[in-house]
Design a protein around this nucleic acid. Sequence first.
DNA 1: TACATTTACGAAAACGTATTCGCTGTGAAT
DNA 2: ATTCACAGCGAATACGTTTTCGTAAATGTA
Lengths: 337, 337
Amino acid sequence: MVTIKDISKKSGYSTSTVSKALNSSSEIGEETTSLIQKMASEMGYFPNAAARLLKTNKSNNLGVLFVDEMQSGLAHEYFSSVLNSFKVEAERLGYDITFISHNIGNLNMTYYEHCKYRNCDGVVIACVDFNDTRVIELIQSEIPTITIDHIFNDSTSILSDNLKGVKDLVNHIYDYGHRKIAFIHGENTSVTQRRIAGFHKACNKLNITVPDYYIKPARYHDPKSSGLATKELLELKDPPTCIMYPDDFSFIGGMNEIENHGLSIPNDISVAGYDGIYLSQVLRPKLSTYKQNTEALGKYAAANLIDAVTNKKTYIPKQIWVEGELLVGNSIKKIEF
Amino acid sequence: MVTIKDISKKSGYSTSTVSKALNSSSEIGEETTSLIQKMASEMGYFPNAAARLLKTNKSNNLGVLFVDEMQSGLAHEYFSSVLNSFKVEAERLGYDITFISHNIGNLNMTYYEHCKYRNCDGVVIACVDFNDTRVIELIQSEIPTITIDHIFNDSTSILSDNLKGVKDLVNHIYDYGHRKIAFIHGENTSVTQRRIAGFHKACNKLNITVPDYYIKPARYHDPKSSGLATKELLELKDPPTCIMYPDDFSFIGGMNEIENHGLSIPNDISVAGYDGIYLSQVLRPKLSTYKQNTEALGKYAAANLIDAVTNKKTYIPKQIWVEGELLVGNSIKKIEF
DNA sequence: TACATTTACGAAAACGTATTCGCTGTGAAT
DNA sequence: ATTCACAGCGAATACGTTTTCGTAAATGTA
């Protein structure tokens, strides 16, 4: 391994000078600087991140905290897509990414401790139980954090605008002539709460009265539970003309159930998804859905986290709402009056 | 930040002793050790990874190298699933994970340089262009590497047994009475080559002659291209009775095309997928497919890489083939003679 | 008793870098 | 001629560990 000392010896300059030259300090003369830099690259020099970190306390490393209950964290398309975008932007800005989890080695650390141990400059938090005291400890620590899809005091939040998403969907469905709209929603999270709120707000504004039994609980990414909810909806005396699903994937369960009842989409029953994943656009019929802007979410998260890290003193936490986009497919029938 | 020095002052022991005690060295007396350890945890001491690394050259950090052409790396369910399993096992064994990519900061490093810079103890390589000289440089370096789904000299490889997978599928299809089996395959990679080889081997053994036009090229994870191939197959004078797809997701394209032709699965035409992703099991009809054991792949990769890291001198590279499992759905019709 | 071995600990150096401060020489300003 | 400012560089220290080697006391051995 070639170090700054080797360059020092070979060039005749002191290690201080070499270090400064390599960091393009203005203290060092132009000629010397370029000479040293050239020599360094010829010798195959690369800085030692550990040594540098030890001195500067700056790791250029960001932590990613997410908890994958069911070990399926990364397999969840929405999150993995956000994470990928986060990664791309972070790398572009010169940061590496390390996963933060429970245990490292035999020690059982808290998230905060793990971040300290790895000297993360900042941490992005997603998909976790925000009531977990260890999560709270981390957010309230001196380490800059950013949360995705969850609002937390004193931490910047990047949020997919679920309120608007559901509203847009409802308005779109209404425009197509539907007045009996059912909503199958996911587990009780802040995201879900906002979606339900959006649903009610939109319906109120449109003067649609929604019977309670049009609102059905299910689970995200779980076609079975959505299928069950669909069944119950279809067998109502007064069934809806359009069903909104928690997400595109869950819709598969509904699709099967609708076929079970001998109905066809969109002629007999209309449906809408959520997320706008690849699948939704290749299904037949193409799903009308709301595409969350995962790319922007990840990118903004990275950019803002790095901003917070860089300007630690002056940075002011904020909330950034990221709008998605309505994708109009063929799963909603136009009803003529 | 509480350091070893603080403990040293408070306890009266030297930093050497404290360090040793914290690492449970046998050099230090039992009483002293437990006293120091207790004191350390009370004071909220946590080791500084950078300082430790600087001395020991052991980072307890593994690199993950994959290149996401199309920025969809993490979104690819197969890989993200393997990665997730890798992560879980690595963490269990006390290792963190850092992504290795092209650029960090403004410097444009090679993969090898990036690994050195971050002091990765080892690297797992997947989904990359194995002809890339930078990949080769990394594999041939002194850093232990492990490759997934690609055989490389002197590097341990964890491989999903695609030969067996396709064979099993063909045999299964044959058992159900099919003799006209078409195979749509993905881009030309070593994985694809093995799958095609497996297809031919199985057919030969079963004495099935496969016309060239039953072998169709398409792309992975691309329903459109698979749909196109399906169309061509269906419109042959002598169409197959069963079509095998490059992967479960691509099958969606075939499904649509089959419906276009007014045919139904499996009565008019049988189909098989590959991968065994969640989707395949909730589709109607449930897809007969071959489930790759992503969990084992990731787990073995982590375990072997760490083995290689730990026993750097004595470790002997090997190839580990991971078998999957045939999932029998309802997409293949039993033909009675 | 005399010697060898072991136990328990400390002093000091080292890992590779960044930074503070001081020194020297040059040219300009007084 | 004297002072001053400044550019260009080096010595020294520090970051928080681990590790080697040494030493003194305690223990074992003959």
